[in-house]
Design a protein around this nucleic acid. Sequence first.
DNA 1: CATGAATGAGTTTTCATTCAT
DNA 2: TATGAATGAAAACTCATTCAT
Lengths: 204, 204, 204, 204
Amino acid sequence: MLTSGQPANLSPRGRKRKEAGQRLCQKGLRLMAEKGIDACRVEDITLAAGLAKGTFFTHFPGKDALVAFLCGQLLNDLAGRVRQVGLSPLDARSLLAAVWAVHWRFFQLNPQAAGFLGQAWARASANQEIKALWDDYVDMLAQWIAPAGEHLGWPGERAKELALWLVSSSLGFFWLGRPLGLGGDVPPELIERLGRVLAGGPGK
Amino acid sequence: MLTSGQPANLSPRGRKRKEAGQRLCQKGLRLMAEKGIDACRVEDITLAAGLAKGTFFTHFPGKDALVAFLCGQLLNDLAGRVRQVGLSPLDARSLLAAVWAVHWRFFQLNPQAAGFLGQAWARASANQEIKALWDDYVDMLAQWIAPAGEHLGWPGERAKELALWLVSSSLGFFWLGRPLGLGGDVPPELIERLGRVLAGGPGK
Amino acid sequence: MLTSGQPANLSPRGRKRKEAGQRLCQKGLRLMAEKGIDACRVEDITLAAGLAKGTFFTHFPGKDALVAFLCGQLLNDLAGRVRQVGLSPLDARSLLAAVWAVHWRFFQLNPQAAGFLGQAWARASANQEIKALWDDYVDMLAQWIAPAGEHLGWPGERAKELALWLVSSSLGFFWLGRPLGLGGDVPPELIERLGRVLAGGPGK
Amino acid sequence: MLTSGQPANLSPRGRKRKEAGQRLCQKGLRLMAEKGIDACRVEDITLAAGLAKGTFFTHFPGKDALVAFLCGQLLNDLAGRVRQVGLSPLDARSLLAAVWAVHWRFFQLNPQAAGFLGQAWARASANQEIKALWDDYVDMLAQWIAPAGEHLGWPGERAKELALWLVSSSLGFFWLGRPLGLGGDVPPELIERLGRVLAGGPGK
DNA sequence: CATGAATGAGTTTTCATTCAT
DNA sequence: TATGAATGAAAACTCATTCAT
């Protein structure tokens, strides 16, 4: 696998191998997001990474494993950003808004992530590993925002739905929007207003 | 094709064929939504419809055609419901809220539709027909809601993004939520509150 | 089948059916010669003949049967022309030349026949009926020309080879030539000279 | 591809692969000539070559490619033999006779070649590559024999037809003859006489 | 470890033929 | 008899995965 604890003391050989694995991830993410997970062959990825087809299987047990690994990586990344939001004390509303904004910005700046996760999600029904990753992520998010939600009158036992709403409204927007050429350049002030307009809020 | 024009006098043979075509659509929608468009073989669909494999190709030129046809049908259905919203005069905020609610309810009651459209979307980059259908739908929606949006300070030239937001936030929720067992039973009052909480609106 | 003995007293229904069968043969010959026997679907033929697909099988037991029938028809036609040559008394050389010329002209004027027979031949190994038709034709021809051949010193037990030579050198020329755009307009005097030049004859 | 350039240092792996490719060609030629190009499945070929079905497609992009490759190989072989005829100075008549004899002997000794080329030809209308190969071959041959033809009174602008005649009268004979069991054992002296008898030449 | 040739299961699609109407 | 919908066998081709070198 690729997640090696120690950051240091790698033999030059080990370093090269690690770099190869990272290239596999990078190129794999890009190609799968662009061409579609199914339409992207293992060989496309290894070719882009400058490796031979067979080498792929020394890094991952199979194509599905790469998909799951990338899912985990992206969700991990997101989780880290969400955690940082919690470091600064915020009132309930601001917390939710901040969490939402984290997701929005992440997908706006990583259209590949939106494209990839959107597709990967379609496999959740067939692939237990992916489903579990998403489940865990939404769970974690729900625990984080549950207090804020309850403070605003959102029932605690429905926190998962609130979390799902935060994720899906941002991921969905960019996933559906990218192929249409929409979303990439929405100016910040409009983003803030999005929910308000929708909700019939004051709009200022 | 499956155009459901006149319910008029069909020979018993014609009726049978039409029913077969509808069964193909129904079962196709269900199976593709559940197992994934790619994972669902043509034979799975015909078997479920009680037909032989080859019969599929007398109804549709290929698998892609069924996917596109179903996309068109679902978006058409949605468009019809949106149009009905316009019949009763509403202020800007209520209009947007109503349009959003139409989408939300549609996907809540048709989880298959969410599952299917979510996946079909992944093929928009590769399948021009599907992309065009989506493009047209978002376009139509944008024109419908542009005045209301402008009334609330949302720039008219960004109406497509607003439309996308309305669609994606509802489709995304149910698409991501269903495999997790979320979304199906969210009570109406929470749904109304969703956007408000998110947007930091009054929330009460 | 299509070969009905009685030329007359056909009910109007019978006449129509006979005409349909002839249309099937005509269009079938043309389409198969043009597109290739395998590439030409049964439906292509019935469509061109203004009939429904299923009707084909009330005229012929299968596609192969049409191919064989057309083979037989064409070879029959050829045989008839060859027989006419025998009616006028000719010396040995002139007889052979005349028989060859009959074939040559037939294929020059019926490029479809050359195209069709050429392909049909490829099926002789798999289709006993076609093989038998050819075998019979060559046999018949061999008996016709054997005396003339022997008169010129060609051993009688090799008459089949002589017959084959007469047929193949004309059929081959037009079959290979047509797709290249060659052969259709070779002027008569060159045709006469063909064999002489090749054989090193006087050439005048 | 199968370019047989240098017989030089090939890794044992490369040698094995090359041999596999050659086996594919050999068996493919034989099977297609015998059973018919269309009736011969890719798997028939690979099985005969001791390989798995999929391996075929690592050597050739598809079945058509093998057909075209074999066409090219056979015509190349023929071309080489024709070129050798030109090395020894001959008068016009002898040159034409020699060129014809080269074709005749080639097809007599390689009945598979006749069977295969005959069929491959039927695909010239559909397959541009094959058509081009034949076109080039006839063109080349025409240029070679044009002077000799003109010397004997055959118009230079009709040299292609003369070339076609030389090829088709030999290829046609063996192609049509083999399934009938004719042609394989025609003694040399009869071969020489063939054209003379046909042409009404001296016949002795 | 890296390589890339070999594998073969799996999928779409075609089309001759059957048969109920 | 004519029709055309249904059938299902067959074939080409793809590609994840294995494994000898």
